[in-house]
């Protein structure tokens, strides 16, 4: 076991320094087991990256944390995932509320085919009764959210424009920005830069870095250099198992496990 996993996760509701505890979590797609007894504790407020070869279950793990995986219908799980002191796999959990606290950014930017303005407020409107916020408050929220992702100055005169007409980089920024009105605790990102060019990657990484401290960010990436640049802790997965979870520098400089070392060298050598 690795350094972060040697003590049993604390089960105190609320703040224990961790945002997510995954305990003995296994997942099957039909008869195919994609995750094997996963145990992870994700520290609050830092950026944790997940690396591993394609098909090792990174997306599956990530998509289990907001239960978006369930839409495939053939998914079965065992174990528990504790977020904000509650096992999110329990029957009585409202997935809508869960997804309010656990936002997600996808590989392919997926703004909704409505206006930029409405995209930013889409989530909020799902979670508040209509008329709850004044028009003024909503406008302020949109400005704040778009400013935070560095999009405001570019789009402030075209808020009514269809969001799908933006460039991919702008779309991805919008997809991050539209999570902010919900004040999520955790933001999941599944290869958020893989559709972008080098300059775009740099700007999005800077944006994610700037969110450190206020959100717990869990980011899947196929790019080891990115994991190294942008994350505080790193998780290495292989064939549905967690091999190693340590501070990022340690993982790259002094990998504990043979497999980790092989993976890192294989890619670098």
């Amino acid at each position: 076991m690795t350094a972060t996993q040697n003590s049993a996760p604390l089960q105190i509701p609320g703040r224990d320094g961790y945002s997510v505890h995954v305990n003995d979590f296994s997942l099957w797609y039909g008869n195919f087991q994609a995750l094997f007894n996963v145990n992870i504790n994700i520290k609050q407020g830092i950026i944790t990256s997940m690396i591993g070869p394609s098909g090792c279950g990174k997306s599956t793990m990530l998509r289990s944390l907001n239960r978006i995986n369930e839409r495939y219908g053939n998914v079965k799980t065992t174990g528990s995932i504790t977020i904000l002191g509650k096992n999110i796999l329990d029957e009585d959990v409202s997935v809508a509320t869960l997804r309010k606290s656990v936002g997600m950014v996808f590989q392919r930017p997926n703004p909704l085919p409505i206006s930029i303005f409405d995209n930013v407020l889409f989530g909020l409107k799902s979670h508040t009764p209509s008329g709850y916020h004044s028009k003024r408050e909503l406008e302020d929220l949109v400005e704040q959210s778009l400013s935070e992702v560095g999009l405001w100055s570019e789009v402030k005169d075209q808020l009514k424009r269809k969001a799908t007409e933006l460039t991919l980089e702008q779309q991805q920024k919008l997809c991050i920005g539209r999570l902010l009105p919900l004040k999520p605790e955790i933001i999941l990102m599944d290869e958020p830069c893989s559709a972008l060019d080098a300059a775009g990657i740099e700007r999005i990484e800077a944006l994610i870095g700037g969110m450190r401290g206020r959100f717990t960010i869990l980011m899947v990436t196929h790019n080891m250099a990115q994991a190294r640049r942008a994350s505080d802790e790193c998780i290495f997965m292989l064939m549905g198992e967690i091999i190693e979870h340590t501070p990022t520098l340690d993982l790259f400089m002094n990998p504990v496990h043979e497999k980790t070392a092989m993976y890192i060298e294989g890619r670098y050598g």
């Binding site: 907001n66 978006i68 839409r71 997935v95 809508a96 509320t97 869960l98 997804r99 309010k100 936002g103 997600m104 996808f106 392919r108 997926n110 703004p111 909704l112 085919p113 409505i114 889409f122 989530g123 409107k125 799902s126 979670h127 997809c175 539209r178 999570l179 919900l182």
Partner: peptide, 25 residues
């Protein structure tokens, strides 16, 4: 389908997706 998934991940219900995403789209 990416639109449905995006809305779902923001916590929208299926009905909200119908009225606020699918009908406009």
């Amino acid at each position: 389908d990416a639109y449905r998934e995006a809305a779902l991940a923001l916590g929208a219900s299926k009905w909200e997706i119908v009225f606020r995403v699918l009908f406009p789209a």
